[in-house]
């Protein structure tokens, strides 16, 4: 049995119940039950192939886009199962945003990138304000305010990633999922993203997948350690990295394998 010592005390932003994901005959997630506390940063760590990215993609139904993936179990968001028949994945993704490993700005202007989400739901009259607010939240405003019409592909990698964060924030999600958001960036850009995460958590619940254990230790309140599709241990980040209860966790965080 996994050691789980994180409880949201009724304040869960997300709650999973026996979530399983199969790709064809291969079970990538083998029954995970956990709670993500509101306005906290939760890090998912584990060796490659442990299923942390797959689990993250269950939280906004991005796995739906993989034809062979089948998800069972429940993911509760405000008490409602995201995988219930009547739930529209498009609606889910508007409430639960995502940032990817590789910055993926659209080949459009900086402004149009941030405005993309809000424009999907009509023509908001205060679009300029939304764009500015989102860019400020993503700590990018000062760098781009004078060149909003430039193509986003002209930005540096770190700026592109913050632009993608601004783009996700522009639709005011409650939860932000981040799939190794800094792994493709240099150390300085990476540090900026980490700083940003610490600011964003005042308003958002953040779930971050990372390969970088120092990063998990720096930015997260709670850490879940996964191994081959199973949740091994889920606890305060401090406990996970200093005094884990499971031997397996200790071996991983001390670098004995993985």
């Amino acid at each position: 049995m996994p050691t789980i010592r994180v409880s949201a005390n009724g304040e869960a932003a997300l709650e999973t119940r026996d979530v399983r994901v199969r790709y064809g005959n291969n079970e990538a997630i083998k029954g995970i039950t956990m709670e993500i506390p509101r306005k906290r940063v939760v890090a998912l760590i584990g060796p490659s192939g442990c299923g942390k990215s797959t689990l993250l993609r269950c939280f906004n139904r991005m796995n739906d886009l993989v034809p062979s993936a089948a998800v069972t179990g429940e993911v509760l968001f405000h008490g409602e199962n995201l995988y219930a028949d009547h739930v529209d994945p498009v609606e889910v993704r508007r409430r639960i945003g995502m940032v990817f490993q590789k910055p993926n700005p659209f080949p459009k202007s900086i402004y149009d990138n941030v405005a993309f989400g809000p424009r999907l739901y009509g023509r908001p009259p205060d679009l300029d304000d939304i764009v500015e607010r989102s860019l400020r939240q993503a700590a990018l405003w000062d760098e781009v305010k004078d060149r909003m019409n430039d193509n986003a592909l002209g930005l540096s990698g770190g700026q592109q990633q913050r632009l993608c964060i601004a783009r996700a924030l522009a639709v005011t999600p409650e939860i932000l999922l981040m799939d190794e958001p800094a792994s493709a960036l240099d150390p300085i850009a990476s540090a900026k993203i980490e700083e940003l995460i610490q600011q964003l958590v005042e308003h958002y619940t953040i779930v971050i997948v990372t390969h970088n254990m120092q990063q998990a230790a720096r930015v997260s309140h709670y850490t879940a350690y996964l191994y081959i599709g199973e949740l091994i241990e889920y606890d305060d980040t401090n406990t996970i990295f200093t005094a884990p209860h499971e031997k397996h966790t200790e071996d991983y965080v001390t670098g004995r394998f993985g």
């Binding site: 609606e91 990817f100 993926n104 999907l120």
Partner: peptide, 19 residues
């Protein structure tokens, strides 16, 4: 990645295709 980025913002298949 561009498609995923758009889907993650709540775009429908048609919106991803056209926008």
């Amino acid at each position: 990645g561009l498609r995923q980025g758009a889907y993650a913002l709540g775009a429908t298949k048609f919106e991803v295709a056209t926008r």
